[in-house]
């Protein structure tokens, strides 16, 4: 449900950016980690609703979902979400839809381990970022 808060942050940031440069925004490219389990449909609905009250009411949002590659800082093993499927399912089962990874995907190291060596010390690319703006 906090997709709405994320959408609010995107509209706010891009609106500020466009006003500072006096540019009309046509399209916003948002990159999200698949780990965040953010629902693209809700993000789009929220963005399209919130933008109406802003100076970027004509902007379109395109969401790019990044597939995750994790790299263990202890043994060097590179793995994906498939390799930690059980841990991810366990988080959803224990916490439900508004689970810690949905709110802050960086928290993955508290819930999963490197499948090869068992370390929690692995790299994650978890940020939500605007990758590009078309004017």
């Amino acid at each position: 449900m906090h997709e709405w808060a994320i959408a609010m942050s995107i509209v706010g940031s891009v609106e500020k950016w466009s006003l500072e440069r006096n540019l009309k925004v046509k399209k916003v490219y948002l990159s999200i980690p698949s780990l965040s389990m953010l629902e693209v449909e809700i993000l789009l609905e929220a963005f399209n609703t919130i933008k109406k009250e802003s100076k970027i009411s004509g902007a379109e949002l395109e969401v790019i979902v990044r597939e995750q590659n994790f790299k263990c800082r202890s043994c060097g093993n590179v793995f994906t979400m498939k390799d930690i499927k059980e841990e991810l399912e366990s988080v959803i089962k224990d916490y439900g839809e508004e689970n810690p990874l949905h709110i802050a995907p960086s928290l993955i190291t508290a819930f999963a381990k490197c499948p090869k060596c068992g370390s929690n010390d692995f790299e994650v690319d978890s940020s939500i970022r605007v990758e590009g703006i078309e004017v």
Binding site: I6, M8, G12, S13, K16, S127, I128, I133
Partner: peptide, 10 residues
Amino acid sequence: MNPLLELARE
């Protein structure tokens, strides 16, 4: 651009 940082500031 980092929307969450901007939201936190706001």
